[in-house]
């Protein structure tokens, strides 16, 4: 059986079909997907050149070689430049917003009603979700710790390990990630919709500073309510761990709780709450900035929403590491 679209090249038989490709002897990398030509360039189908008739390189080199062969260095540099420029503009814009936010803080009392409303939205309405995720976070922590402890560490230390992990790390970070998904996305979508429907412009022309009216209440309530949510999360997660310790690991409640208290320091709790406050600022600030930067209708709102969750999540994890290195000296 022969490939139906065989044609004769200069020296060898070349096939440019897809259906019959498996039957002809054309090198694999000549049939790769359209080649990347940078953001501004046009993707083109690869051309079968005499060089493609050479023996195939190793599979892991196929994509880089194809890119190098068909992408000009100038275009590559231009694309890198564009990305750096976009990042610079993003950071610059965010810095300007932070400056305007700080300038609007003295008017916080005048915006108390807005702050309280946002505290209700961000905090109270997030509570059921936080409780649900925290119960299972605590439960799985206790189960995994017990699994690791068996035959090596006395089980009376189970509460110590789980309690420390929850208060210092798990509750703040997981609560922040859940809130980033729920609240950060919601802020970006709401403000993004306001941007594309000219509501933010309307505020501007009414002489109402949108940063004071929209951003400041959200960031303030984020900074206040995330530590509150983390406190709930601490409590509920330890409760979940206790249930697993008693019912599944056959540890007494007293032993588990004594373990929790054994090396418990209030400074750990404060560190967790401080981190939570920083995470709350990150979530709301990124959500607001993404919303303000929205362009292009429903698709733009979707992009901003996704971006808010992704950027906030990444920044939460990076700042978590940085804060840990500052607060907990090894």
């Amino acid at each position: 059986m022969k490939c139906p679209t065989l044609r004769v090249g200069h020296h060898k038989t070349i096939c440019d079909c897809v259906v019959g490709a498996a039957l002809c002897d054309r090198p694999l990398y000549a049939r790769e997907k359209p080649v990347w030509r940078g953001r501004g360039g046009r993707a083109t189908s690869p051309v079968v050149r005499p060089s493609s008739l050479q023996p195939s390189p190793p599979a892991f080199l196929i994509a880089p070689l194809a890119a190098l062969a068909d992408t000009s260095l100038v275009e590559l540099i231009r694309d890198i430049g564009r990305r750096i420029l976009r990042l610079t503009v993003y950071v610059g814009g965010l810095t300007v917003m932070i400056g305007r936010l700080l300038a609007s803080l003295p008017q916080i009392l005048g915006s108390a009603r807005l702050v309280v409303y946002q505290m209700l939205t961000m905090g109270v309405r997030s509570l059921p979700l936080i409780i649900l995720t925290s119960v299972f976070t605590g439960a799985v922590s206790a189960w995994q710790a017990a699994y690791q402890f068996q035959n090596f560490v006395p089980m009376r230390f189970l509460g110590t390990a789980v309690g420390k992990a929850i208060v210092i790390e798990l509750a703040p970070v997981l609560t922040a990630l859940v809130v980033a998904g729920r609240v950060g996305a919601s802020i970006a979508a709401e403000l993004g919709t306001m941007r594309v429907t000219e509501q933010i412009d309307a505020l501007e022309v009414m002489g109402v500073d949108p940063v004071r009216y929209l951003v400041m209440p959200r960031v303030t309530s984020g900074a206040i309510m995330l530590p509150v949510l983390v406190l709930f999360s601490d409590f509920v997660a330890i409760l979940g761990a206790l249930v697993v310790a008693v019912l599944m690991v056959n540890l007494s409640a007293t032993t588990f709780l004594n373990g929790v208290k054994l090396f418990f320091h209030m400074s750990d709790m404060y560190a967790g709450l401080f981190k939570a406050s920083i995470f709350g600022i990150i979530i709301s600030l990124i959500g607001c900035y993404q919303g303000f930067q929205t362009r292009g209708g429903a698709e733009g709102v979707g992009r901003s929403t996704t971006g808010a969750v992704v950027i906030a999540s990444v920044l939460i994890l990076i700042s978590d590491y940085l804060i840990a290195t500052m607060l907990f000296r090894v």
């Binding site: 429907t197 000219e198 509501q199 412009d201 309307a202 501007e204 022309v205 009414m206 002489g207």
Partner: peptide, 13 residues
Amino acid sequence: RMRCGVLFQGGAL
């Protein structure tokens, strides 16, 4: 701007 009023295309309420 407070001395100006604007009717936006979609209302922007």
